[in-house]
Design a binder for these strands. Structure first.
Lengths: 246, 246
DNA sequence: CCAAAAGTGTTCTACCTACACCCATGG
DNA sequence: CCATGGGTGTAGGTAGAACACTTTTGG
């Protein structure tokens, strides 16, 4: 790691959401020699845009490109650092001593959240200070380092709020999906249940879905129709918003 | 300026909105020896929270305290700096040569927007690099340095969007105001006109206003009633939101 | 008395909510 | 044939949009 090329005191943390088995999952890193977990993050190269560095971090951990990624907050409290942590990391051999100075800085971190398709993330890759990278359910999070639990919470809140004027699903669901699957995604994000018929009506009224003539076979019941997103209309909706208010 | 106490490469820019004569105004700094204007901003002390440093900047420029101030975005593109600018400033004697190194850094900046009561800002105070501090109408902005026009635009967009689930007016209007004045504020922020009767009904339904038995006298027409905000309910609405959607 | 702005109420529509029945499938 | 989940339509309520007349005031 060539710390001299990094913007000092600035980091990026990504909250990477995936959806699997009707559960919102977050991609987390298990720290080496520490019981806690961390958000995948990184530093910002001096001659790169912060936003594109976030894309780089995301790609490094998930292997994915062209993903919905959005900056949502800067976390800049002084007490979000743990002065003894770099010491501990050096002592445990997690980081080489020459990096101690870098990790001793006071950092502010920019939070990004990403929506990715769970199944497309093959083998999430850990970083220097972590031993592995795993999907963890949002509903049952492990202990997290520093203020990462807070960052995660804020990401979820932001996502929930933005659901009001942005569609969700592309990047989070496979290409073809059923209406109940899409509904389950909304219910999971919103943490509340919705009426099937009303959900369908509202979602169809957004005019961003294309009904295919395929069906999801295999359940002991009526086979549901498969839909896909009309990507052009979907992206238009992302830009211009869905319903406004005023 | 003791740059060694500042967090490197990190600045704050405040978009300070005021409302006066049916016009949204922004508090801007006129740069010394430069035709352009800038957002009031500053740097972050190493041992201070970023949010509280934004409060400090705001107070320094406006003299005001206890103001609605909200972080809305981090601007981190590489091309938001102007490599020749520090040179020019030193040459023109705007900054002492020993500060050149500080201003030569690549900066990322955190945008905050504030809503302040126009009349309560007495004599806005300029900073080191600016010759004066003035209210400028949002509808007719002067040329701005760097990406400040962009930052301002994003602040306005954010404000517009947040109007859907947050009330506005406290901090931006005097304590007592008429319904048409409040409506004018909304119309200005939203850049569109609203129906008087529907506006009144909707606003009253929020249940954050208290009608006083005072009237605004002086116009050649019917004297409008004066209202004030129920601060407790207003703040509750800020926290919990107004209407939701899902 | 007239111009200008403020206060007020109703109707229409659109959307949201709540709710029940039939259908297809696999076991 | 039955249990499970999927698909569909309707009625009632609520909120927003459109709209016109009366009132007050200063000039």
């Amino acid at each position: 790691m060539q710390t001299e090329n990094f913007h000092p005191g600035l980091s990026i943390d990504c909250v990477i959401f995936g959806f699997h088995e009707n559960d919102l999952k977050v991609l987390l890193l298990k720290l080496k020699k520490d019981d806690r977990w961390a958000l995948p993050g990184g530093f910002v190269e001096k001659d790169k845009d912060v936003d594109s560095e976030a894309v780089r971090v995301l790609k490094k951990r998930t292997g994915l490109d062209h993903i919905f990624l959005k900056q949502f907050h800067l976390f800049g409290d002084v007490d979000r650092i743990e002065p003894s942590h770099s010491d501990t990391m050096v002592k445990k051999g997690v980081i080489p001593p020459e990096l101690k100075g870098w990790f001793d800085q006071r950092f502010v971190t920019v939070g990004y959240y990403a929506l990715v398709e769970y199944s497309r993330v093959k083998a999430p890759t850990p970083d220097l200070t972590s031993e592995r990278c795993d999907w963890r359910p949002l509903s049952d999070l492990p202990p997290m380092m520093l203020d990462h639990a807070q960052i995660l919470k804020k990401a979820h809140q932001t996502l929930k709020k933005e659901l009001n004027d942005q569609p969700i699903g592309l990047n989070l669901l496979p290409e073809h999906f059923t209406m109940p699957e899409l509904q389950a995604l909304y219910e999971t994000v919103l943490e509340k249940s919705l009426d099937r018929r009303n959900f369908r009506r509202k979602m169809l009224s957004y005019d961003i879905l294309i009904q295919t003539d395929l069906q999801r076979k295999g359940g002991a019941h009526k086979a549901p129709m498969l839909y896909k997103f009309d990507k052009e209309k979907y992206n238009k909706a992302i830009v211009s918003g869905l319903q406004s208010g005023w």
